[in-house]
Computed example of a mutant assay.
Amino acid sequence: MTDRLSDRNPQVAPQTLIDEMVPPASFDGVSFDTYIPDPQHPSQAQAVATCRDFVARAAKVRAGKRNLLGRKQTTNGIGVYLDGGFGVGKTHLLTSVYNAMPEPKSFATFVELTHVVGALGFSKAVDELGDRSVLCIDEFELDDPGDTMLVSRMLSELTARGVSIAATSNTLPGQLGEGRFAAQDFLREIRKLGSLFETIRVDGPDYRHRDLPPAPAPTSDEELREIAESTPGATLDDFDALCEHLGKLHPSKYKQLVAGVTLVCLSDVHAADNQSVALRLVVLADRLYDAGIPVVVSGGKLDEIFTDEMLAGGYRKKYLRATSRLLALSRFADSSDS
């Protein structure tokens, strides 16, 4: 019988969340040299140069200064912020920064970082990360006032301890939170966050869809079952059952939920019923993409999971990113079968 994700209930120790703050395996071996800038978009080459300079300056911060007695003095960390659309290589550049910096160092998505704080507590999380040469934050986002205050305070404390911060996002620092809560009420905190970073724009088309055909059409339920049963390590879930199960798990467990899975098969896919379900699917899509796990579905198309109403709201960029990644994973599955 094929395994189901909805039968899994992974347990994750808080310290494990710290230990797992590394780039996704799909980015193993990347560097500035392996990033190929698109000559039609000069900002990409400029972003590489800026990130190289950031590494050089952050390394000097890490080394620290010496006072007249020869004692090391803590220097505030510096920040760089890569803003751009989906699939222009921001995570590649962020991972290149991580790989070029000395240990200890940490890498996490914004959501994973908030999970670490929730699991360890604020003070413990700051202490754990306070000795890092760099903290790399992928997909920086602020979805509510609590996150705004939390991240602002955390990054301020970390940079004061000499931790440099590198981040990526699809939203400029001054616009974080727009459309999701009353940003004007927290403008001071948002501006404080923005002041930590040197912002670099990275332009270009989404490489995941560059010269590629449309996403594969959904399979029949019978074919989906046959694919799952013939693929070692595959899982097969009813879409609604999986969505219900995701609601019972803290999102920090989604990485372990899909650990060891080679293929995710979902039957009777349709548009998410509400925003809460949709946001959980976003986190799941990120974990699947990080692990490079292909996705095959029956029912609806993967680009129809998020409704027009959702795409018109404050989480638009998050939903578009998830759609982009799910389509890439569905193409990967389709090419593996051919």
Rank of each mutant, 00 (worst) to 15 (best):
T168W: 01
E229G: 14
T171L: 07
S96L: 04
K105S: 03
V296I: 15
P251D: 06
G77V: 12
A167R: 01
K248I: 02
P251L: 02
S31Q: 02
G292D: 11
D237G: 04
L212Y: 00
P39N: 08
M154H: 04
L246E: 00
K318L: 13
D38Y: 03
L281I: 07
V295C: 08
R188G: 05
S330G: 11
T95Y: 03
D38T: 04
R66A: 14
P251Q: 04
L94M: 13
R8N: 06
A119C: 07
G233D: 07
V264T: 10
D143G: 14
A47W: 01
G130P: 06
D206K: 05
G292R: 06
D7M: 07
S133R: 14
D221Y: 08
G87D: 11
T34A: 04
L82V: 09
P214L: 09
L288S: 08
K255C: 06
H245A: 09
P42S: 08
V277M: 08
L187F: 10
I293C: 04
S330C: 12
L82P: 01
C243W: 00
R132C: 11
D240R: 05
E226I: 12
A100N: 07
N274K: 01
L246M: 03
G146L: 14
S169C: 08
A228Y: 00
D53L: 09
K318T: 15
E244K: 14
Q11R: 13
L176N: 06
R57I: 10
L93D: 07
V261W: 14
I227S: 01
I305H: 00
P37K: 05
N76D: 15
S123E: 15
F332M: 15
D144K: 09
F181V: 03
S276E: 11
F122G: 05
Q184E: 13
L187Q: 13
V88C: 10
V116R: 00
L279G: 03
V30D: 01
R8Y: 04
P39D: 03
R52F: 02
P24K: 03
V55P: 00
L94D: 02
E20A: 12
P205V: 05
L236Y: 07
H250N: 14
